[in-house]
Design a protein around this nucleic acid. Sequence first.
DNA 1: ATGCCCCAAATCCTATAGGAACGCGGGCCA
DNA 2: TGGCCCGCGTTCCTATAGGATTTGGGGCAT
Lengths: 232, 232
Amino acid sequence: MSEPSPAVARPGFPVSRQVLADHVYEALLEWLMDGRLKPGAAVSIDGMARELDVSPTPVREALARLEHTGMVRRVALKGYRVAPVFTREDFAELMEARLSIEPVNARLACARMTPEGLEALKQAVEDLKTAPRGGTFAEYRSYLEADERFHQLIAAQASNQFLLAAYNTLGGQIQRFRLFGGVGITDAEQAISEHQAVLDAMMSGDPEKAAQKMVDHVEKVRGRAIADAPEE
Amino acid sequence: MSEPSPAVARPGFPVSRQVLADHVYEALLEWLMDGRLKPGAAVSIDGMARELDVSPTPVREALARLEHTGMVRRVALKGYRVAPVFTREDFAELMEARLSIEPVNARLACARMTPEGLEALKQAVEDLKTAPRGGTFAEYRSYLEADERFHQLIAAQASNQFLLAAYNTLGGQIQRFRLFGGVGITDAEQAISEHQAVLDAMMSGDPEKAAQKMVDHVEKVRGRAIADAPEE
DNA sequence: ATGCCCCAAATCCTATAGGAACGCGGGCCA
DNA sequence: TGGCCCGCGTTCCTATAGGATTTGGGGCAT
């Protein structure tokens, strides 16, 4: 609004020309994750356009992509809304889906592990251990990112583009639940040791053991979340 | 181009106002399935807009959604292209993914089957048996639709929105492979009996048996496709 | 007081215009 | 004859404008 050329690409940047829609996508994703866009809230197209200081067209494209991830929902010709809060049933379904997919990924990833992949997994677990775990979002954000990265890496190491795509349809929801369903990080020590167990199984080269440890982890996550019982 | 109001909604239609982007999405999907848009071909945005007699904006939105299904790919700022033909490795990965997901769906669907769902499954198998199976696409199209519907119904009956979403990321690819990877319908009799076996297991109410029959089916599909060995 | 109607603001949706970059072919020069 | 440069067309990308519809509120009649 105030600046004369707000949407112009920064001249000094290397190659990331254009991609205005991509930037909008990233911004909306971050706002969704931050909680700045709360579940159930309306996401007006040109409202977001004004806020981000771009025209509605890139916003429309970004929302069309975002819709397919389940983060926002489109209501015919009434606009977009942020997906509602997870119910207890939603959570149960999500964990059931994770139990169906992630152990398979772990088994395959273990069998097809590369040195680079293993190194990245070690780094993710290390980041989990060293990440700050304060009470505000900004503080435990890196913890959540390391958590998500660990599972994402396993899915990638399974070397199956379709399983990776299938996992990614869950990944965003998992991340979203971590933010809105949970109450901060209350189980870091246990979660870290479970992740470590999965990693150990990976390093030992036993796919069945890796799968079993992953089952353990997801089931215990489910148990702890039900114990916390955030809301309904 | 020639008509004065080309994009106007047909006045007599019941309620399907707007949704121009949805129509574009359906049209592009159909063209992709028909083979009118061949793998590897470029999909120009305003080319499609001219062809469909709409403005580029709805085409852009439809392509953004389509990208997330894997049917088309976006190359930064070079436009969209139809996804390349399946390689043998792609096929192996797709079948591996199906083997990871579909038996789980079958097990859950069996346990949670509703009378309506069972009726729909019976109808799908019936459609499979009665569908024409000629050599042209138009002739075996209804056969393919019934096949896809059978698997889709099982995923839906599993009553897990996330597993359904995960399956749907595969469903389009499966359908696409049926068209471009195969050579018409050469295994109808065997495929029908395998589907019937899954259905029988569902009706008997034995989830483990249903899952096993689904494993059988997918593995045999894989075996027959490898035997056909379309190309590389 | 309550219900109905009309108007206005906001919103979605599509079309059109213009700016920038990439690819390609022809012409020019060594 | 071969290589280089330049101009043209195509395409993507964003902004702006206008038409159509829904939503909310105020005023009026009963």
